[in-house]
Nucleic acid binder design. Structure first.
Lengths: 249, 249
DNA sequence: GTAATAGTGTCTCTCAGACACTATTCT
DNA sequence: AGAATAGTGTCTGAGAGACACTATTAC
């Protein structure tokens, strides 16, 4: 049987119905706090509960589907403006039978790192979407609580060996802003002086713009130099988290 | 509409047909070489070409489906004997439209680390399966070449910060055997003395059995002490690869 | 002036890597 | 005996973290 004959005889209906969705763990930092985008479900199941934004995959790549969902729920134009700087990567796929009571749903979860985005417009499609502090998000629909937890852990780990912290800030940023990203994601303050020296010592992490902020900090201090993201894809050597000895085993 | 009414009105047929499969990048070390399990496809599309073992997901978790496929293709009993020591983890999900010419297929790829397994029996179900050096595997069906490449890179990275090298060796092993794993996966020889000291200095990586091998090496040398895997889930500090400065950017 | 912050200097401790060396075992 | 390997000792350089210090700016 050649390939054409095979295709003609092939009936997709022979296979059990499975739905494929994408869910997005979209993270940003607002007011110095790590926040995640959640939507309030209007329909059963889990009507009224908070959930990760997501939906069915259409005739598109999985990456495109995730980006589309993110655009829909934030009410922003995909690929332009604030959304063009979003870092999007696949997290993990969740497909336990029974995770959705309606039918077998296999969900490809994505992790998104975004600079501070505007609040979803109350009037738009994204009416039900809200940014919520990640630490206090609880009682999510489906298995989204677990997905969020694994997304957060991935985010924390990624900051160590990748330059993705820059995805949380604007195109130009100060070292202090970058440090605030690490502090928010890791939930720990970092020593300002050592952090400063370390960031500048990693090749390709940041590059100087030659300019400084227009004014100093709100409560004093000199003007800070501005940097933009460098061309490194991995940090070498990495910025390791303060050791959490007990989480090793 | 409450949840029960919703379920009753719900028709899976309303959604476009998508098939979900698992594909497994099963790695082992045989004769000091990193090898991957491949199957020869008997049917179109890509008849006669080599592919990763895999198949449709049934009424089971994704992890169970991957383990089942691995068991089927190796001809071994799942969960017993050699297969019980296999490390299995999700790699990434591939779902580009057109990656399978028959229909939309979303494939959840898994990565498996196995100690040296017996050759698949020529007479069994796994007739078409062969262990092939990973470096020379080429011209795979579908997008399996890309999946294999990403699996290999994940495996190389995992050895740095996880104790999974022990999944490639037997329950008791010498430091030299462990070093051979690293050398095979990274494709680089490692300094015996430094490797030895480093492995023993990482808490929880290996623990001594108090015994030694029955005899020395094939070409001389003292008897080596035997170790088993420790209880660490991450290596801290990690065993870093010899720096590959050019792959950073 | 006072407080806060940006950025740099310095010291110590740890660890990776290079190299050397001894002890043990096989052929 | 000769060769190969297991395991340890030692030195050096790089880097992380603690601490101190200066310079600059807001209020």
């Amino acid at each position: 049987m050649d390939e054409q004959a095979f295709l003609a005889a092939y009936d997709p209906r022979d296979y059990p119905a499975v739905a494929v969705t994408v869910d997005v763990v979209a993270l940003t930092i607002r007011d110095g706090v790590l926040q995640v985008l959640l939507v309030e479900r209007g329909e059963a199941p889990f009507a009224g509960r908070l959930a990760l934004p997501g939906g069915f995959v259409g005739d598109e790549t999985l990456d495109d589907a995730a980006l589309r969902e993110l655009a829909e729920e934030t009410g922003l134009q995909p690929g332009t403006g604030a959304l063009s700087r979003v870092h999007l990567e696949q997290l993990k796929t969740y497909g336990d039978p029974g995770r959705d009571p309606r039918m077998r749903v296999v969900s490809v979860a994505y992790l998104a790192f975004a600079p501070s985005l505007p609040d979803p417009r109350p009037g738009g499609d994204a009416a039900g979407a809200v940014w919520t502090p990640a630490a206090t998000a609880a009682d999510l629909a489906f298995d989204h609580g677990r997905i969020l937890a694994e997304g957060l852990e991935r985010a924390r780990a990624k900051l160590e060996y990748s330059p993705l912290a820059t995805a949380f800030v604007g195109p130009e940023f100060t070292i202090a802003e970058l440090r605030a990203v690490y502090a928010a994601v890791w939930g720990e303050d970092l020593h300002a002086g050592n952090f400063h020296r370390k960031v500048l010592s990693v090749p390709g992490f940041v590059e100087s713009t030659g300019t400084t902020t227009a004014r100093g900090g709100e409560r004093g201090g000199p003007r800070a130099k501005l940097y933009r993201a460098g061309d490194a894809r991995v940090l070498h050597p990495p910025l390791l988290r303060p050791t959490t000895e007990d989480t090793i085993r």
